[in-house]
Design a binder for these strands. Sequence first.
DNA 1: TCTGGGGTCCTAGGACCC
DNA 2: TCTGGGGTCCTAGGACCC
Length: 420
Amino acid sequence: MFALCDCNNFFVSCERVFRPDLEGKPVVVLSGNDGCVVSRSNEAKALGIPMGAPLYQIRSIVDQAGVVCFSSNFSLYGDLSDRVMSILRQHTMRFEQYSIDEGFITIDHIPAAEQKTYCERIVRAIKQGVGVPVSMGIAPTKTLAKVASKYAKKFKGYHGVCVIRTDEQRVKALHDFEIGDVWGIGRKAKAKLLSAGITTALQFAERPAAFAQNLLHKPGLLTWQELHGQDVIDITQLPMKQSITTSRTFAHALTEQSVLEEQIANFCAHCARQLRTQHSACQQLLVYAHTSSFRSDITQHYLNEIVTLPVATANTPELVNYALAALRRAYRPGALYKKAGVVLLKIIPDSAVVPDLFDTKDREKDSRLQRVLDHIDDRHGKRAILLGAQLPSDAEVYKTEHKSPLYTTDLRDIITVKAQ
DNA sequence: TCTGGGGTCCTAGGACCC
DNA sequence: TCTGGGGTCCTAGGACCC
């Protein structure tokens, strides 16, 4: 049996841990640039604020109802997430983190009759130890555990834990479950199923397997099987990420090439640091930048430049050089670049890097220097030491008007808060 | 005017091989 | 006039997740 643990309104709940005065009030967390709503408290949901709504479109609700807005604070969420996951890890032989706010554990070491109480204890332990409310769903497959966790979240009577064990429970749960809310059924699949007259998870499950396969191909068939109680979806994480991205939307379109170059250098340095943390190197790098796809009044321009490296590397100065050269090749003067990013691709373990016989670089020396730079970063905070190419310009590139302090992760911020 | 960021998997079609 | 068939590998794009 799987137990899925899902944090309720995670980002909002994280903010509330340090602002208990916001309990019971409408709260939302915004995406980068304070653009869209990415997390809502129950009170905000009740006001009709949809997930993903741009802030400017719900401005009147926010002002009238006094909705409290936060800019996203990922180092806070990441830190609280680690604490939740470590409690989960303590309660199982097998744990798999699925996202920043969800993890699956197996609970077969607990007798069936005691599994619900066992998970209720976990729910209480997380609430007491971290301060974040969670819901758990217990079922023989991950997809059914997801269904169960939604019931646990929706109905207070479950005390945070809902079980789907018998066939009778399964049929009853699927009968009242909207097809679009099933894990793995996205926008497109939902539209296809609706036009085939299917509105609930049970109606989908009652069709033959071939129907699922023909309409939705392999992913659809897997979901169908999981709804029938066959455990077929494996979410085992690969030891290494296969791609690493850093990208941002800017508050205002960038028109200065030098400003865009600084941004690309920063993105690239950030990606490279992650690459080293997982002890890997990349063989390819992609730089992109484009105009705002929401603007119909300007000519759209997509800049996409892929670089294949002669020798796989994780060295920041080297990668930044390639990234900037790529940007300079493809940069179009006058374009209104609203979003840009760097993606590292073809990632391999650093132990598998094949040297080049005619290489002119002293890679051993470069990597010693890199280790020192990383060490300085770790001790004195990110951006303690930078490449010249990363030096911040005067330009205001981002907007975060509602950011909460870094309560848990940055000593200097804690000192600042105390001083205030 | 204002609209996020970071991933994975699957599939169809093209390139290429013999 | 008439010009194959089968296989693999790679890639771009789509769909999905949070």
